[in-house]
């Protein structure tokens, strides 16, 4: 399996098409630090120690930087939506798209291990969407996004939503070139999620606390949840939303229109 470059051993699919080897592997080079040099051998006569000092995520970050540059050139506002499975992010997304209809061009990249159900739900709203199936992969990476963009071709000055694989752990480490990670947490999940999965909440610029229409039926402590999120990320902004009742949707849309200002 090669989930790093997205070749996925034949399991990765973008827009339903298998992603095959033979693409531009090796085209992007790691930045070579100036201080890479050989040391004297230490173990045995023929072995030597070599200083490397390379970031493990350098390759992904280079792809992410290319994506970010592409978004900047085209004036695209890209968001990376992250959450656990079942937080209601696809429903929230379809509702958001309906409310923005005619105002802003929107495009969506959907990430799931299997099926194109979510991309179909998005396309039913009338906007273009492409599905990435990661096969066994647990997150989207910047290289997959680069390929998806080739097919999706989002319009200039559009809003691009990247719905990551439902997973509160792995997507935290992978920059896709987005302007912000937006973490969606539903009130049916428990208020201590920000402490249990701190890396994701630390990486996000905005938390949408979703399904708040259900609060009367739950013992979810909103204040505590917000406090926990701010403990791992003092700068995180929080909006309470419900795609069902419409609560908080105005504030969320205002945030989108202001491009996260």
């Amino acid at each position: 399996m090669c989930t790093t470059c997205g070749c996925g051993g034949g399991e990765l699919k973008i827009g339903g098409k298998p992603h095959v080897h033979g693409h531009d592997q090796g085209e992007l080079r790691f930045r070579r630090p100036n201080h890479e040099h050989s040391h004297e051998p230490v173990h045995g006569e023929t072995s030597r120690r070599v200083q490397v000092e390379k970031d493990i995520l350098a390759k992904n970050n280079a792809y992410a930087q290319n994506n970010r540059q592409h978004f900047a050139t085209q004036g695209i506002f890209a968001l990376n939506l992250v959450s656990s499975p079942g937080s209601g992010k696809t429903t929230l997304l379809t509702r958001t798209i309906e409310l923005l209809q005619g105002e802003l061009p929107v495009a969506v990249i959907e990430g799931d291990q299997q099926t194109s159900f979510d991309a179909e739900r998005i396309r039913a709203t009338g906007v273009s969407a492409i599905q990435i199936n990661t096969g066994k992969g647990c997150h989207l990476d910047a290289h997959m996004i680069e390929h998806a963009l080739e097919d999706l071709k989002p319009a200039d000055h559009s809003l691009l939503f990247i719905e990551n694989v439902g997973n509160l752990v792995c997507p935290a480490s992978f920059d896709l070139g987005e302007a912000h990670k937006v973490v969606i947490l539903s009130v049916t999940e428990g208020e201590d999620k920000p402490l249990k999965y701190p890396d994701m909440f630390a990486a996000a610029g905005l938390m949408l606390l979703n399904k708040v229409d259900l609060l009367p039926y739950l013992s979810f402590d909103v204040q505590k949840c917000v406090e926990y999120a701010q403990r791992v990320n003092p700068h995180i902004r929080v909006i309470l939303t419900s795609a069902t009742s419409g609560e908080g949707m105005g504030e969320w849309l205002a945030w989108l229109r202001s491009r996260g200002a």
Binding site: H43, E53, K54
Partner: peptide, 30 residues
């Protein structure tokens, strides 16, 4: 130790300044 630790004196959140590195430092090769 944990991202959610608070300042023991102020009881306020801390901004992470180190410990997020992931790098290949050195290799021993033939």
């Amino acid at each position: 130790i944990e991202r959610y630790d608070l300042c023991p004196e102020c009881d306020m959140p801390l901004e992470v300044t180190g410990g997020t590195e992931m790098r290949v430092k050195e290799l021993e090769m033939e």
